[in-house]
């Protein structure tokens, strides 16, 4: 027998697996494929105060190590999420969900977080200050410790629910941003968001994505995520949700050894719809293969010695 349960900001997760925001919608498509109650939880589609269509298409491109997306925070807006998506989710998911929130101003972040935090189903708020695909918001807040702290304080003021700030790999010093979030009252940080990239269409001699750039995700991101989780773990005391290129149970253990308490799975859900179920089902055997009986014993384990 092994123990896969961990505690994330005071809430128990049966296992550390959390489908990452933007790859799992509001849960419903995947609930038609498998019982999503087997997940630790999931982080729902990045939600803004107002509905957003997002960027023009094409929004998706491929590279050898994964994909680029420039969706641009398409979502129905906080009111519709509360009125339509959460009641529908309640039918198929009986655990606290992680509400992912984006915004274009500090006030908008606070207002959207207050609305979603008031929903009983919402366990954690994951505040995205690192979306690479929108202008004048998102990553602008995550690039700088002062701006990140400002968003954290504003959201902290409207909720007592666990508050997790989602950080960008583009920050000059991600550990400094994480520390600023912690000092401003964050209960946790999640990292990494996608890394801005570009592909160029040889026939058209123009960027493949209508937006020009898009966030890179997929297996190529794993070493970057491991390095950044490792660095942030040394800089903060609050728990880390590690993510970036995870596609199998071994990747989960690697990020936990670097310092993650829980692990997000993103791009893998899109190419392998059962990716999270497969990871959860294989995790105990993979743990035993490496002599691990309790996941809690390995969090930050690579820092010893």
């Amino acid at each position: 027998m092994v123990n896969t349960a961990v505690t994330l900001c005071g809430i128990r997760l049966d296992n550390p697996i959390i489908p990452a925001s933007g790859t799992f919608g509001y849960g419903y498509e995947f609930a038609q494929l498998y019982d999503i109650n087997m997940l630790g939880t999931f982080s729902f589609k990045g939600t803004t105060r107002q509905p957003r269509f997002g960027n023009p298409t094409p929004r998706i491109a491929e590279y050898a190590g994964g994909l680029l997306n420039a969706v641009g925070l398409q979502n129905p807006g906080a009111d519709a999420v509360i009125a339509e998506e959460l009641p529908r989710l309640r039918q198929v998911f009986h655990k606290p969900v992680m509400a992912n929130v984006s915004g274009f101003s500090v006030e908008e972040y606070a207002e959207t977080c207050a609305l979603l935090a008031a929903q009983e189903q919402v366990g954690w708020l994951e505040v995205n200050i690192s979306c690479p695909n929108v202008h004048g918001g998102g990553a602008a807040f995550g690039a700088d410790p002062k701006a990140a702290a400002e968003v954290t304080r504003a959201v902290r003021a409207v909720t007592d629910k666990p508050l997790i700030l989602k950080l960008s790999p583009t920050a000059a010093d991600i550990a400094a941003v994480a520390r600023a979030c912690q000092d401003a009252g964050a209960d946790g940080v999640s990292l990494i968001n996608t890394l801005p990239g570009m592909r160029i269409d040889l026939k058209r001699r123009a960027p493949l994505l209508a937006n020009g750039t898009g966030g890179m995700s997929g297996p190529a991101m794993l070493p970057l995520a491991v390095r950044m989780v490792y660095q942030v773990y040394q800089a903060v005391e609050i728990p880390i949700v590690g993510m970036g290129g995870v596609s199998r149970a071994e990747d989960v253990l690697e990020l936990m050894l670097a310092g993650a308490t829980a692990v997000g799975v993103g791009a893998a859900n899109l190419v392998e719809p059962y990716a999270c179920r497969n990871i959860i089902e294989t995790l105990p055997d993979v743990m035993l293969r490496y002599g691990i009986h309790d996941l809690n014993d390995i969090i930050g384990g690579a820092h010893h010695g």
Binding site: E29, G54, I60, P273
Partner: peptide, 16 residues
């Protein structure tokens, strides 16, 4: 349209 997942999860191929 260029698709990410093909089953409605990623919002890559949305249209108005």
């Amino acid at each position: 349209e260029r698709m990410g997942c093909g089953f409605g999860a990623c919002m890559g191929c949305s249209c108005r």
